Each structure stands twice: as C-alpha cells, then as structure tokens.
Simulated assay, not measured.
Amino acid sequence: MSTNYYSSYEQERKNAPKQCPHCGEPINQDLSSYGSKVRHHCGSQACRKAYSRANILERKHQARRDARQRILAYGNRWLDLDQRRSLMTMTQMVMDANFDTGHQIAEQIVQIIESQRCKHDRISVLIENAALAKRRADEAQAHNRDMEAQYKHRIAELESELVLLQLLQGSIDKIAAEQLDKQADPIPQEPEPEEEDEDRNAVLATLALAGIEPYTGGQDDSEE
C-alpha cells in the first residue's frame, strides 16, 4: 500500500503545474524535498474559488459521462438496436436540457423502463407457468381418461368371466345333484346266469353210467 501511495505521489509531483492556472503566479517551483505538497493554485481567494468551481465542473462532467456509460450498458444488455438508439437520443436530449441534473433524470427514466421491463418479464413468466400448468393438467386428464377406459374394459372382462363361471358352477351343481339322486335310489340288477361247468357235467355223466348217484349233500341225513 505504501509503495502505491509513493508512486501516486511521485506521479502527482511530476505532473504538478508550474504556475497558477487562473492568475499565472509561479507555483510548485521546489518539490525536491520529500513531503512537499503539490499546489494547484497560488492560494489567493479568487484562485481558490476558481479552482473549486473547476473541480465541481470536472466532477459534473465525470458524473455525466458515467451516467451515459451506465445507460448505454443497459441498452446493450436489454434492448435491441432501435430501442437502444431511441434511449440514447432521449438521454442526450435530457442531459442537454439540464446540465446539472439531466444525467440523473435520464437514469431515473431508465429505472422506470427497467421496472416496466421487469414487470413484463414477471408477467411473461406467469403466463409461461400458467401455460405449463394447463399443459400438465391436460396431460393428466388425458392420462386419467386412458386409465378410466382401461379400467372399464377390464371390469367388463371380469364381469364376462364371472357370468361364465356362474354358468359353469350351475352346470356342475346340476350334474352333482343328478349323481346324488342316482346314488340314493340304486337300480336293482338281475343276477347273471351261472355259466355251465363242463367238468361237472362230465363227472355227472360218468357217475350216471356207473349207476352212482351224485352226492347232493342230503344223502347222509336220509340214511340216518
């Protein structure tokens, strides 16, 4: 920091005027010693006032230049070419109309323009958000309609399947009832005729030739 201050001081000493710019009185003739203050006027009251007026005027010019640069930077950032030209023309007219406060009035006008632009931007954002919300709502409604159609179709299929199951259940119950009725009243079956025993017939024929009666199971009882 001290180095920068020393460099600035040396630069100021180098550029120090050698005479008063207002009356021509010699000044800053001996700046060889360190710490010698650079003078910008001779020190008389008239020259001090003139120097003060010159400083005020220079600061005013600088403020006007800074305001113009800020307005131009705003136009370059946010406005198109035609709008920027109109803005700078308006700025020049206002600054020419009032040297002291024209640049301030011009910047106030820019602030009003900026507030309106921000308001329009906010409105645009709100419109975009509303459009996005509406689009999402429409998509949600379309999705809900599709899902509702799918559910209705599935319900119809289930109802058809239920009717079919009920018909099958009725048929099964009917068949089961018929089977139960048949088991409760069985149909009597006739005895099947006995098949002839060829060996027995042959034995009986042999006994008949021999004069022997076949055993029937009741002969012992008759002999007793």
Score class of each variant (00 low, 15 high):
S2P: 00
K134N: 12
R145K: 15
P188Q: 06
A184I: 07
H22M: 03
S32A: 07
R70G: 00
E58K: 15
A46K: 14
A140Y: 03
S115K: 14
R64Q: 13
H143L: 14
K60Q: 14
T3W: 05
D220M: 06
L207Y: 05
I175Q: 08
E157R: 09
T91I: 00
M93L: 07
H61A: 09
A46Q: 13
N98I: 03
Q116K: 11
L167P: 00
D82C: 05
Q19D: 01
F99M: 07
Q116E: 15
E161Y: 05
Q189G: 02
Q183K: 14
M90H: 04
E157I: 06
A210L: 11
K182I: 11
A63V: 03
Q104L: 10
Q19W: 00
A131Q: 13
A73P: 00
I175E: 05
L79A: 02
E157T: 09
P186D: 03
T101I: 10
Q69S: 12
E194R: 13
R145S: 08
M93F: 08
Q219C: 03
A50E: 06
D121W: 14
Q179G: 00
L79V: 05
E161L: 11
G170Y: 07
R85W: 09
E224A: 05
K60N: 12
S33I: 00
A63G: 01
R77N: 06
Q179W: 02
I155T: 10
S160Y: 05
E161G: 05
D66A: 14
H103A: 08
Q116C: 06
